[in-house]
Design a protein around this nucleic acid. Structure first.
Length: 374
DNA sequence: AAAAAGTGCAACCGCCTCTTC
DNA sequence: GGAAGAGGCGGTTGCACTTTT
């Protein structure tokens, strides 16, 4: 048995609202309020509209102090930063911008802001790829096609925003970025890798009183989020702590920071959290698993993968490396375009960096900067 | 000048959560 | 505890308008 419709679809008018309808609705609500029942409201005032439609019309256009268009740069920045941190939760973003509606912000993001921020990056990226050999280009484009656009956008924007907010962060230092070949990495990089686990919290989130880390979320919220992720493959896992799907007490922190290592933790019977530290190879493979979970929306697969790595101990052999890519469902070659970009600005096995290397490095990171110069 | 393509945005749809009984 | 209804939300659609060819 299906749910009963909220209104009689056959006798309900659809499409644009006429000025008369607007006036009726506005007058009534200003005099009497909504009465706490949107479904009954159109009947009361003689409107042949669905109650939900009345609610939407009031909230988005008729209520006082609504602003339309003319987004300021500050608003752009807030929207951008919140989108990166919490994704497409338009109602939460709208709550931080007085006079703006979620629908307005959603439309603004989809039609303008997204293009404004990512448009030039994509073009530049395409130019670079076209100069590479044919096979590499094919692989790279294939990878981009396969990525969730939302997750990719957030990843790209996040990296760029981090670089602007913290010029000394990991993000401004390509030399510290993990390569995708774990065995080629200098073990010393571990220290640097660890350092960005403690990035300063997003100031926009602090300013707007929003959680700055997954740990600040109530457990119930986290579990609800994971339930959503489990049920809906289209929801990505950024900024979440995910429970293992095997019913054990293990959970995995999928950080807001896309470069954070994955921390596999376990809550013992006394409720004490125990976290396991992994050496560099594991962190890099964990990063790959996280990237997979972000880009391909396979959070549960990532949990299983990392848990498996944990169970297998610290041995990270070539078989595991291959397995990693197998789990990621992408070829090693298809990821090379990314690591090549890292390499182009990085001296071999160097663990130090200077501003010149950041400013002069070409490749993917510079593209983010180009894209962000509005 | 006209057709095609692109863009912006209001509104709808369907799913999920919350509340009430 | 669970069923039903209402509210809330994000994704998507359809159409008017603008720009390009």
């Amino acid at each position: 048995m299906g749910r009963a419709p909220c209104c009689d679809k056959a006798n309900v008018k659809k499409g644009p609202w006429s000025p008369e309808e607007d006036a009726k609705l506005k007058d009534y609500i200003e005099k009497h309020g909504t009465g706490g029942n949107w479904i009954a409201l159109p009947q009361k005032i003689g409107l042949k509209r669905c109650g939900k439609s009345c609610r939407l019309r009031w909230l988005n256009y008729l209520r006082p102090n609504i602003k339309h268009g003319g987004f300021s740069e500050e608003e752009d920045n807030i929207i951008c930063s919140l989108y990166i941190s919490i994704g497409s939760r338009w109602s939460i973003i709208a709550a931080q911008l007085p006079g703006r509606t979620d629908n307005d912000i959603k439309n603004y993001w989809n039609t303008r802001l997204k293009k404004k921020l990512l448009g030039r990056r994509k073009q530049s990226s395409n130019n670079r790829l076209s100069s590479a050999n044919h096979q590499d280009s094919k692989d790279a484009n294939g990878l981009e096609d396969s990525l969730s656009s939302s997750a990719l956008e957030r990843l790209q924007l996040h990296m760029h925003l981090q670089s602007l907010q913290n010029p000394f962060s990991f993000y401004n230092n390509p030399a510290l970025w993990p390569k995708l070949h774990p065995f080629q990495e200098n073990y010393k990089m571990n220290q640097s890798f660890q350092s960005f686990n403690h990035e300063s919290p997003n100031p926009v989130l602090i300013q707007h009183g929003l959680p700055t880390s997954p740990q600040s979320d109530p457990l119930s919220t986290i579990q609800q989020d994971y339930a959503k992720i489990s049920k809906n493959p289209n929801i990505d896992g950024l900024g979440k702590t995910l429970n293992a799907s095997d019913g054990s007490n293990s959970f995995i922190n999928v950080s807001n920071n896309p470069m954070d290592s994955i921390m596999v933790s376990n809550v013992n019977d006394d409720g004490i959290q125990q976290s396991n530290h992994h050496h560099q190879e594991q962190q890099v493979s964990a990063f790959q698993a996280e990237l997979d979970s972000i880009l391909n929306n396979k959070a549960a697969a990532a949990v299983n993968f990392v848990t498996q790595q944990q169970q297998q101990g610290d041995q990270m052999g070539a078989a595991d490396f291959d397995y990693c890519f197998k789990e990621m469902n992408v070829s090693k070659d298809s990821l090379m375009w990314w690591s090549n970009d890292f390499d182009s600005s990085k001296s071999a096995s160097s663990n130090s960096w200077d501003s010149n290397s950041v400013l002069q490095s070409d490749g993917i990171f510079q593209d983010y900067e180009l894209g962000y110069n509005l």
